[in-house]
Design a protein around this nucleic acid. Structure first.
Lengths: 308, 308
DNA sequence: GGCGTCGATAGCCTTGCCCTATGCCCGCAT
DNA sequence: ATGCGGGCATAGGGCAAGGCTATCGACGCC
């Protein structure tokens, strides 16, 4: 009885990848939207068809044996290849259709997302945006894996399998409590940072690193700087008199509106900024369409990042 | 009601590719081993899910509109990617398991196939060889597409997406009717070809081109040479006194055995030959295993190509 | 030592897929 | 012109793959 090879189902491959990602059958089943027994059965089925065991079930949960990683990677590629078929189909509609999964870094999401979604709806009415907030590293990883279609983040993009185009320059302003000595009008030289207690985001945010760069350039030390978990939190700490912070221009309207207790002043010499980019998997069948979309929305996004 | 994107089935993709290949629903259904209505339904289903029509049904049969070729190519890639999962699994078994689809060019098949299959069975007892006889171009195309796993053919391999290793040197001998003036023992200088009516295979066989090269080098003309459809036919024509031909050493035992009415003499100055290579898709997960296999069987295949 | 968690197994059922039969439209030939 | 045949679409019934609930066995933890 020859064990003629059988092709695994795409769904089965998804199950396998989900288990590998979560190292748990129950969690994987949950993510896949099926019951745990259904997933267990299918995974077992795949293992049988492939003639080897993909997971070690045992004490301390599930683990992936070394020899299985190649198979699981192949499964990821296969799933993406199948999805690419649908993308190739969408491509020649001339517009984006169906789910468009967009990831945005947390320091842009609240401020640029409305513009982004408005532009998407306007230019691609049949697209169905699905939004996620992730930090740069996770965002890039998920785009590479094909779990996300587009990313809005700050240059540089730490990946060589992603394509991207700049869509806006987002200048950093200095945010001060309204009773701070520097509160006032007009711009300040960046050098003033050297003498100020700058509040930073917690580690992992790219804005934190950019702010630290700005401080270093200005000759300011960031040792022992207090950390916040979001720009909103930072702003509240600033308005409570806890120091100053750097705020991207895109956030000004939301975070430093009149009555917020915050005053912002632009900086000069140098004038610090971050570059907002739209990114996608460069091998995606929709790469050209994403590029055109990025190109088209750049003015709107730049308008959301007021320049002085 | 948002038309949330749905993933096509691998089987559905196969149907689509089959229709594109045969430009006929009935023929495609036949190849896929299902009824025509079943295939029609599934193809329609795919078109619906992708939101576009992949084929023009109409007068004069089925045609593929320009815009659909990208999608169909993506489908081919997807199918191959899924198959690669199974191959990746086989790879780490340490041996070939399940179907191994091998293509051999017609001028090697009858003579080298037995050795090849014997070696495959010996080294990979759980492999299930499936053999096809194709000329070089078609062979290469089908390996590239993933329709074949291995190819046995003559160097050079006209593709840069295929890997290959030489497994034997197969010398060309001169085959003569046993009453031919040159019939005898020992070797002849290649130059004698210049004065002989050399029978060639019909166009499309690589051996024909190689033989013509040999003749050209020897200063012989091949204009108006008579053509045969197989080496066996050529040999029968030769033994009937219709001329001479070039015969690879691997074919000697079968075609020029005593009683065949054929005499063969080796050639020198130069000593013409073809290089037998084993080839595979270089991106295949099993590439390393194929290379090892080729390496391992080279001695046995060389033994099947007796050298003088 | 009982309990909670996690994966495997059992039994039932839904549904996706395939088959046969048939209809429709075309080109072609009588 | 009309009947015939090839080719794809449609209809309806059947089977089996795959899903769900319920339950069990193993293990770790309080």
């Amino acid at each position: 009885m020859p064990a003629s090879r059988q092709r695994p189902t795409v769904r089965q491959l998804e199950y396998v990848v989900a288990v590998a990602d979560h190292l748990s059958f129950s969690a994987a089943a949950d993510v896949c939207g099926v019951s745990q027994p259904a997933l267990s059965t299918q995974v077992r089925e795949v293992e049988q068809r492939l003639g080897l065991s993909l997971f070690e079930r045992g004490r301390g949960g599930v683990s992936v044996p070394d020899h299985a990683v190649a198979v699981i990677d192949a499964a990821r590629r296969a799933i993406r290849a199948v999805d690419d078929v649908a993308d190739a189909a969408v491509d020649l509609q001339g517009e984006l259709v169906g789910p468009v999964r967009i990831g945005i870094i947390p320091t842009m999401a609240p401020y640029l997302l409305p513009t982004l979604v408005r532009e998407l709806r306007r230019r691609h009415p049949r697209a169905e945006p699905a939004l996620t907030e992730e930090r740069t590293d996770e965002l890039v990883r998920r785009i590479e894996l094909g779990e996300l279609d587009l990313g809005l983040l700050a240059a540089p993009v730490p990946s060589d399998s992603l394509a991207s185009i700049p869509v806006a320059i987002d200048e950093f302003h200095l945010a001060l409590g309204e009773d701070h000595p520097y509160a006032g009008e007009g711009s300040l030289p960046s050098g003033v940072l050297a003498g100020l207690p700058v509040l930073l985001l917690e580690d992992g945010h790219c804005l934190r690193d950019q702010a630290m760069d700005v401080c270093a350039t200005a000759g300011a030390s960031t040792d022992g700087a207090i950390q916040g978990t979001s720009l909103t939190t930072l702003c509240q700490m600033v308005s409570a008199g806890g120091g100053v912070t750097l705020l991207p221009a895109s956030a000004l309207e939301v975070e430093a509106r009149p009555g917020s207790g915050l005053v912002t002043r632009s900086l000069r010499d140098p004038r610090p900024s971050r570059t907002v980019v739209l990114a996608w998997r460069d091998r995606s069948p929709l790469a050209a369409m994403y590029a055109a979309f990025g190109d088209a929305i750049a003015p709107a996004l730049q308008a959301a990042c007021p320049t002085t």
